[in-house]
Amino acid sequence: MKTWAKILSVVLLVYTIVAGFLFDVPRLNIVNESIRSLYFHVPMWFGMIALFTVSLGYSILYLNKPSLKFDAYAVEFVHTGIVLNLLGLTTGMIWANYTWGSPWHGDPKQNGAAISLLIYLAYFVLRGSIDNEDQKARLSAVYNIFAYAAMVPLLFIIPRMTSSMHPGNGGNPGFNMYDLDSQMRLVFYPAVIGWGLLGAWIATLRVRIRLINEKLSNLEHD
């Protein structure tokens, strides 16, 4: 990852923390000040989707032209994406507890997010169950494409077809109530980019460690 992207991530996140707490937000009943969680909870999901998308790209590249490098990127971007998924789920549970009344509300989007977590955890189960490195990389690349294809309807289509308590769902695409407020978008979009880039930074560190490990084991075999 380029240095400018890392700096951009830090700058955007410093801005998110400052503006996220100090800028005006709409005065709404029930959510009250907790509306500011939007700047931190939702970017976890956007970041996760971005990381999973990068991973999907590398899996396709791997199937096109097998290389340990592509496999390393695919694995570690899923790995970091799962961390963001867990953070999204737990922060969502805290937020739901105080606005919806209970941490697990059986909301379609909440359930969908939990199922996607299980689908992506199975990616590591699959990898762990194969000894042969090439086979492991190839099969998990195929599975990764399946996992992504399963995640998209779970997070974006089913919650919109049924009634969901998440804003912008239940037949209502977009951000509806937040959409009214351009001030919030001024913080929200930089927050999404900032958190996404931070996730990618951590993922690339893991990729580099994995590649170092590969090189070391190659050295041992020489």
Partner: peptide, 26 residues
């Protein structure tokens, strides 16, 4: 509220510094 922002910024700065050190080490 500035106290809250200051604490969050400090924690964030600490985590980023740690991440940068990790990056350099790698």
């Amino acid at each position: 509220i500035y106290v809250v922002v200051a604490i969050l910024l400090l924690i964030f700065a600490g985590l980023i510094a740690y991440l940068v050190m990790l990056d350099r080490k790698i």
